[in-house]
């Protein structure tokens, strides 16, 4: 088995125990579903890190995050949209942090959706910076919750991909692309 291993990221593994390996990279693992996604952004590493590190700004490109409140330097409170007009909430603490390089977090006890993860920022030469999100989570209310979430397009894997694209748009162009024609349509889209 071991000699079949390659250099591809663990998040793209076909093996189910890929999760265990991914978890080894996290100080604290919460949840059993794994999402991994990279995007290359044509901006300097420090700039991207700084924007992300101010968690209150994250709702500007994370469509399903309603609000992030800062409790102290390393603890934040997250209010996230869930299917059926509901919200789910949790507190998250930063478990590891390296300026311009890495932000890792884990939810605290009692989270509606236990989760942990890391955002890595790596130089990509004249292409800018590779931003990689690795997220572990427990789908709300298990399997059924995931099915429902998928129906509502709030499935974390899809959401993470779209959020990263929006982050890239915002950082590279200063705005988030929309095909809406009117403010009314735009509001309906992001509702």
């Amino acid at each position: 088995m071991a000699d079949l291993r390659d250099d591809a990221p663990i998040t793209t593994s076909k093996r189910s125990d890929g999760i265990i390996d991914a978890t080894e990279n996290l100080l604290e693992a919460k949840g059993h579903s794994l999402v991994g996604r990279s995007v290359t952004i044509n901006r300097p590493r420090a700039e991207l890190y700084a924007y992300w590190r101010d968690f209150t700004k994250l709702p500007s490109f994370m469509d399903n995050v309603e609000r992030v409140d800062l409790i102290d330097d390393t603890t934040s409170h997250w209010v996230v949209k869930a299917p059926g007009g509901k919200t789910v909430e949790w507190d998250a603490v930063i478990t590891e942090e390296r300026p311009d390089e890495l932000i890792a977090w884990a939810s605290t006890e009692g989270a509606d959706v236990p989760n942990s993860g890391r955002i890595d920022f790596r130089d990509a030469g004249d292409r800018g910076t590779v931003v990689t999100a690795t997220i572990l989570y427990d789908p709300p209310a298990g399997f059924i919750g995931k099915v429902i979430a998928k129906m509502f397009q709030r499935e974390p894997a899809i959401q993470a991909r779209r959020d990263l694209r929006r982050f890239k748009q915002l950082m590279e162009t200063g705005e988030i692309a929309t095909a809406a024609r009117t403010h009314k349509q735009l509001k309906e889209e992001t509702a």
């Binding site: 290359t40 044509n42 292409r127 779209r162 748009q169 590279e172 162009t173 988030i176 692309a177 095909a179």
Partner: peptide
């Protein structure tokens, strides 16, 4: 968008950012 990697290479129809994220 004029500011992504592809726009920088004048490959405008391959722009990374002009297509909304969901689409």
């Amino acid at each position: 968008c004029g500011s992504c990697y592809h726009c920088g290479k004048h490959q405008y129809s391959a722009c990374d950012n002009a297509n909304p994220a969901d689409n």
